[in-house]
Amino acid sequence: MLVQSIITNGLAVGAVYALIGITYNVMFSASRVFSFTAGSVGMLGGVFGAILIGQMGMPVIVGFLLTLLLGAILGIVIEFVTVRPVLKSLDQHLYVLSTLAAALMIQQLTAIYFSTDAVPFPRVVPIESGFLDQKIWLPILACVGTIVGLEYLFRHTLVGRAFLAISEDNYAARALGLPEQRLRMTSFALAGMIGVLAGFSSGQLMFASLANGPLLNFYGFVPVALGGMGSNRGAVIGGLLLGLFQQTANYFFGGVFSSVAVFVVFIIALLVRPEGLAGAATARRV
């Protein structure tokens, strides 16, 4: 039972981290900006679901679609308010301040208008819990669905290829006539949807809670660094490994030391492979 618990919960939590990692990546690919709002957007996925379905009594499918829509709007707002104004001076890393400030504002507004305590998240699928409860398989399903969808988008659609072109070299892409600004906004909307999907699918596992914001911001960044910046496959592998390792460390070292154990392994992994597990080493002209 212990091994089963570590594996199932580790994969579920890891899938949430992976989704937040993908949110970071999708924002980063289009703008070269690490938006530290990813965790707060994830937190809002749970909050939106709890309000729309749990408190307002909307049907699950309507609540889910509205949550995705709100996530997309939120992503566009983040791009417009925190990213666009600082793009001209990327080398000064002002985006760290602007995106952290936006994350702080999201947290404060949620505390004021929602709750500082955890709030229950409704059952999404009306079935009794069997061998695996939906709180475990929903985030895993969401993660698998997202990575398959993104692979399809990037490999088989024109818009996806335009995204890739922007992320490879946005000057060249602009020179070819690609609408860089619109594509960036679209990618932030997509990132917002993936972020709220993480919070919505894990609502039963993590509750709708303000505290999930900083937690997801923090642990969601680890798979990005582990998997290689911009690599969604790397983020999924990194996220799942992180979840499994964290749950194992929880059991063997206890809750206080598990975070320490996670970050020790994280630092060692980065020392061994600074480019990340799925990243490619880049040559530097000297």
Partner: peptide, 17 residues
Amino acid sequence: SGSVDANNPDLKPELLR
């Protein structure tokens, strides 16, 4: 006896111990 992160979604290992 132990202290656990309040946001840890899985407390089964603790209760199994």
